[in-house]
Amino acid sequence: MTTTNDQLYINKVINGDINAFAYLVDAYKKMVFSLAFKMTKNRGEAEEVCQDTFIKAYTNLNKFKGDSKFSTWLYRIAYHACLDTIKKNKNHNNSLEINEITFNQIQSVNTILQGIERKERAKMINDCLLELQDEERSLIWMFYFDELSLKEIIAVTEISEANLKVKLHRARKKLLGIVKENAAPELISHYGRK
């Protein structure tokens, strides 16, 4: 995923070689689809958003000036396409009250999670992530999974830096709360098995 390679293919597409676009699609479809799936929580919708994103990217490719990474530019289009879809379908979100967290809480949840098999744990964290609100979930995804920098997230979402930090912190806390709630029964069944 080197930027110079991207630029090479982008230039080819702009010069009329449509097939060069397939390279860009293959390189980034997983990233875009994962974000879309995380945000819309629906495979069909995610696929649609993913397609729209690439079509928009194709028709606006000549507007990509290369000031940012191509992936960030694409991410931005995808993020806004997801927001549009969510707004259209308005899945309602359940919100969880955030309580103050303590070091001990983190430690105890950590211990519980360590006791669960890796595959199972990944599924559980994924389920917990889906319980977050759309915006919180997308921020966590960008920052922790796709490892976008704060600066890149600001470029994608147009949220101010201070606001972003607050939102990220709140999202982290909420996620811990949800994991804690979901992990408690897991813990009981875990010991039950022994």
């Binding site: 993913c50 967290i101 811990l176």
Partner: peptide
Amino acid sequence: NSHELDAFVKKYVKEIHTESP
């Protein structure tokens, strides 16, 4: 705590499998 929480989220979110179209 917030550092600890940051490390916690980083560790587990990274384990999630991505979906492919």
